[in-house]
Design a protein around this nucleic acid. Structure first.
Length: 218
DNA sequence: GACCAGGCACATC
DNA sequence: GATGTGCATGGT
């Protein structure tokens, strides 16, 4: 079986096993974007607390965030960890969208997604995963998000070599699947789900793997 | 108390 | 290009 077919098969298996995950159902686009930054190397529960603090004060708005100092913002997002750095990153994004798109998310997402990706990557604090989360979950455009779980699940099941770059894995998914943001959204979430349960960091195998057959022959 | 979590930038070799 | 380190709270 080709790797592309195995990528498709893995999606069907995961979806059948776990069902839809409903990630970032989206109170708003900006909330997704803030979530993408706050979630860097952090559990989602801690991110939710931070977002709730901003919600309560009606701060989920480019204009409101502009008025906050970095220190004020940092205190509100403490629960998400790395709060000083993340406050700076959010301020960097706000500055970016203000200067390039007149502060309008709508304008920003009208941009070709690959052009936008390159521009997002120029923001200090936004790397490939965060940029892709912003485009997929914030903009609902079909770009595939790779994260540590994606790498772990794929490499431990022999779908990619140990040494595979972010871009190579992203190309693999995007060349194998229909370019559907709904599928990309679910697939990424499903990989995190199965990774959390069975592909732990310090265990070099996918233990108790729920996927059919030998865990390394999907 | 150790370990990890839906990364990224920067230094050093 | 690969590898190491700081950033930081909160759950297991």
């Amino acid at each position: 079986m080709t790797t592309s077919k195995r990528i498709n098969k893995l999606y069907r298996l995961l979806y059948k096993k776990y069902g839809p995950q409903g990630w970032w159902p989206g109170d708003s686009q900006l909330e997704c974007i803030l979530g993408a930054i706050l979630a860097q190397n952090t559990s989602w529960k801690n991110v939710e607390k931070a977002i709730n603090n901003l919600r309560k004060l009606n701060l989920i708005s480019i204009d409101k965030l502009k008025l906050l100092t970095t220190d004020e913002l940092a205190q509100l997002i403490r629960s998400s960890g790395y709060f000083n750095q993340k406050a700076l990153k959010i301020k960097n994004f706000v500055k970016f969208i203000t200067e390039n798109y007149n502060g309008s998310l709508e304008n920003m997402f009208e941009e070709d997604m690959y052009v936008l990706r390159d521009k997002l990557l120029s923001i200090k604090g936004v790397g490939p995963e965060t940029a892709d989360c912003i485009i997929l979950y914030g903009g609902n455009k079909p770009i595939f998000v790779i994260d540590t779980y994606t790498y772990r699940v794929l490499s431990r099941h022999g779908l990619v070599p140990e040494q595979t770059s972010y871009n190579e894995m992203q190309e693999l998914f995007m060349d194998s699947l229909n370019l559907d943001p709904g599928i990309f959204n679910e697939y990424h979430a499903l990989l995190v789900k199965v990774g959390k349960e069975h592909c732990k960091k310090r265990i070099p195998l996918c233990t108790g793997c729920p996927l059919e057959g030998d865990p390394h022959t999907i």
